[in-house]
Nucleic acid binder design. Structure first.
Lengths: 240, 240
DNA sequence: AGAGTAAAGTTGGAATCACAACTGTTGGCC
DNA sequence: GGCCAACAGTTGTGATTCCAACTTTACTCT
């Protein structure tokens, strides 16, 4: 049974156990390929594969010439979605937030049209934002709003204020959250290590039952976590 | 430049492009290792590595003897976190939800103690839940509450009702969401294909400023997405 | 002693070969 | 026609070998 398991798994499981149990502290060196072949009596292929798997899991990090070490796992920075103020969250941990904003016009893609409840290929204002922390890009966002609402203000970070000024009263925000593999562009811009996934948040602002703006926010899984605060939902619960 | 890129990346990028652009539809066969070595003029190692990367990304799935195919990407089922009713969400899409519940006592781990604001190793009631859809495990949850609240009711799915009956008025739920690689136990129980990440939700129920229950919910990224509905947060915004 | 260089060790990429387990197909036999 | 066995193809795993690029250490020379 355990005998027929792949050899490299034995190595993976032993090292993983040592890391998660704290026997190997963050920063501690991991045995090299050669040392693994000797210590565990496996081939070089198995040793290399084991190291790759652990690196993929984010437990260790390798540098050419210097070896593998147990990865420092900085706490995932919380992003408070109720406010959704990137700059507030960054200031709270002493980072210097900035962002690039580019606005243009485009035709709504089918999925965007569905989210905005408009006809496909309707004109929309598209805003691309690159959020930076201490100069490094750490988040991406693309926002779409029906072009009728746009009044030329190009600071999308104040979208709600602007929309409010247009006589629309925003009542609700919905967010759909899932994780996926980054697209090449995304891992390029965000400089993601191999294997790191991204959180994809599809956010829509509502005025009553009308969607007025929707955006896709791309967040690296290895740096951030989302924090939601909700009212306790059990008051009017009628049972399951 | 692009010339010095690893060879296997050329293969990965070309196949990934064909998949994301729709040239290779879900279910379509991917060239085998041998075919890749011939078509791209690379060695077997590079071909194998490219296929592994794509499988790891969840774009393709391989079966021994049968080959790799473009993965069917079923729509992600929405989980409405405001209610957090697994059964409701499942019924909505015609699935038959069930769950196994096991309750015991334990000492609070350090992280759990912090979340519950109690001393480490305090006694807690631990509840493990396996949620199933049509019999297959699709979600895991472990819930902890200080043992003082427990009255022997073992149906954790009604935790709020029970806690309410104990004179505690639940006011708020916070959820911390991040994605990570599944632990071996998790990918085993949930039968996750290689490369699929999980969403980890750390949920805490609050009565005023006192945490009364906290839980870890493990959700496969390839089947579900989380849906949050929040009040528009801009009314009392004082600017950035 | 200090600076610069050489050597040893490490990772990441790559080629080639091998084998067990499995799948799908094909062809022969009843 | 229908059933079964053999076969070719494929994946997953593994060994072995090599090399380029890099880091760290140790040593030599000034």
């Amino acid at each position: 049974m355990a005998n027929s398991d792949p050899v490299y798994l034995r190595v993976v499981e032993d090292l993983r156990r040592q890391i998660t149990e704290g026997l190997l502290q963050p920063g501690a060196p991991i045995p090299s390929r050669h040392q693994i072949t000797r210590k565990y009596g496996v081939g070089e292929t198995a040793a290399r594969h084991a190291l790759r798997v652990l690196a993929q899991e984010g437990l260790i990090i390798g540098r050419v010439g210097s070896g593998h070490r147990v990865r420092q796992r900085p706490d995932l920075l919380p992003l408070h979605r109720a406010q959704a103020h990137f700059s507030t969250d960054m200031h709270a941990v002493g980072r210097r937030p900035t962002c690039d904003v580019k606005t243009d016009s485009a035709e709504a893609r089918p999925d965007i049209a569905v989210r905005l409840r408009i006809a496909a290929q309707s004109p929309v204002t598209r805003t691309r934002i690159v959020y930076r922390s201490d100069g490094k890009p750490v988040q991406l966002a693309v926002s779409y709003e029906p072009i009728v609402y746009n009044d030329g203000t190009d600071d999308i970070t104040q979208v709600a204020h602007r929309l409010g000024g247009n006589g629309l009263k925003l009542t609700e925000v919905t967010e759909h959250v899932y994780a996926r593999v980054p697209q090449p562009v995304e891992s390029d811009v965000l400089d993601l290590p191999a294997g790191v996934h991204v959180l994809h948040v599809e956010r829509t602002h509502w005025a009553g039952d009308k969607p007025v703006e929707t955006s896709d926010v791309i967040i690296p899984c290895d740096q951030f976590r989302l924090v939601y605060s909700l009212p306790a939902p059990y008051g009017d619960q009628t049972g399951r």
